[in-house]
Simulated scan of single mutants.
Amino acid sequence: MLTARKIKTLAYGACFLTVLYYFGVFTHLFESEFKHHFRYPYDGDIEELVQQLRSNATPKVPPINTYNFRFAKSSSNKCKNVENLRLVFLVKSAPEHFDRRLAIRSSWGFEHRFSDVEIRTVFLLGERSDATSQLKIRKEFESYKDIVQANFTDDYYNNTYKTMMGFTWAARFCPNARFYMFVDDDYYVSTKNLLRFIRNPTAYPNYLEPAKQRKLHQYDFDLDVNVRLYAGFVFVSAPHRHRTSKWYVSLSEYPYDMWPPYVTAGAYVVSREALLDMYYASFYTKHFKFDDIYVGLLAYKCKIEPYHCDQFYFNKLGYNFEDYKYLVATHGYGDPFELVKVWTQQRAKNSA
């Protein structure tokens, strides 16, 4: 016979087990080990398939995933007739962030910041059902010709679509740039430091020290065009299994105990070779809802190792000149006035 004490103990036990279940403790017990068991559709080596697609040959295996974007606004002439295009900014922006885009155009995204370096900037947007917002975007596009917008709802869990729209746009309309930076519209970026970084990533920023700089000037140094660079702030982390998390992932979505190494999606740079390989790898990589993880999956399947740089900040670095001297990018600049103010101060000190 159940006594009141036993009933109370059973109730507490059930509550405790429910809490453990809710926070994913049991889920972790059923995860597979990433290191030894990782498989992600398409299950096979895709390098040969990627090269076949790049060379316009018919691949041996049909693609399993295709992003059939219809561009409402394509800015398709942005890179036309541009020789020696060094850098393209692909800024992930929300449709209603008009003020942020204006601030970026007049600061780090200004295309004519350096007279001897060709730079282009486009803004990546999804769609809103609000007709007024769409009308404002149309007028903005007519004024600046730098909006790229396709047929998906602009939503946090559609960020992979936005990112792959950027990859698709670059591969289709702007495939000849040396480097591409994907960056959120609430970031401060030092374009000057970014250009320094992509010149010599492994030695940045140490090579800028006066003694080393003099030695470097003896050579015409630049990163080889065939290098597959995928760089920023690199994470090695595990999936969130607790159901309260914004980043919750079930075992059916991803059964492994670790993610592949990935660069935080807020700001990262890829070389042309990396971008094209990763774009074509997406034809053989099942869609995933988180864009940083998906890009990490593409890189892993292409055997591209992410390169970590401490000068990319996924959180906000408090402002002072010395800390920003070699900084490439930092999160936390959703206020357009603050962004322009900091950029103006850094430009005056020749570090923007």
Rank of each mutant, 00 (worst) to 15 (best):
L2A: 09
R5S: 10
L10W: 08
A11D: 05
Y12T: 00
A14S: 11
C15W: 09
L20N: 13
T27H: 14
H28T: 05
F30L: 05
E33G: 05
K35A: 10
H37C: 14
H37A: 08
P41E: 05
E47D: 07
Q51S: 05
L53Y: 14
R54M: 10
R54F: 01
K60L: 13
P62Q: 10
N65V: 15
N68G: 07
F71G: 09
K73S: 14
K73E: 14
K73G: 06
S74N: 14
V88D: 04
P95G: 00
H97A: 11
F98A: 02
I104E: 00
S107P: 02
G109L: 07
E111T: 02
H112L: 13
R113V: 04
E118M: 12
L125E: 07
L125H: 12
E127M: 14
D130Q: 04
S133L: 11
S133K: 10
I137V: 15
R138M: 03
E140F: 09
F141W: 15
F141L: 03
Y144W: 15
I147S: 09
V148I: 09
N151F: 04
F152I: 07
T153R: 00
N158R: 04
N159W: 01
T160L: 01
Y161T: 02
A171C: 06
C174Y: 12
C174K: 15
Y187R: 06
Y188T: 04
V189K: 01
T191K: 15
K192I: 05
R196D: 06
P201D: 00
A203G: 01
Y204N: 13
K212T: 11
R214Y: 09
L216K: 09
Q218K: 11
Y219A: 08
D224G: 06
L251M: 12
E253F: 01
E253P: 08
Y256W: 08
D257C: 08
W259M: 02
Y262D: 04
V263E: 00
A265E: 02
A267H: 02
A267K: 06
Y280E: 08
A281L: 05
T285I: 12
T285Q: 07
H287N: 10
C309M: 08
N315Y: 10
L317F: 04
Y319W: 09
Y326Q: 06
H331K: 10
Y333A: 13
P336N: 09
F337L: 13
W343A: 04
T344A: 12
T344K: 09
Q346C: 14
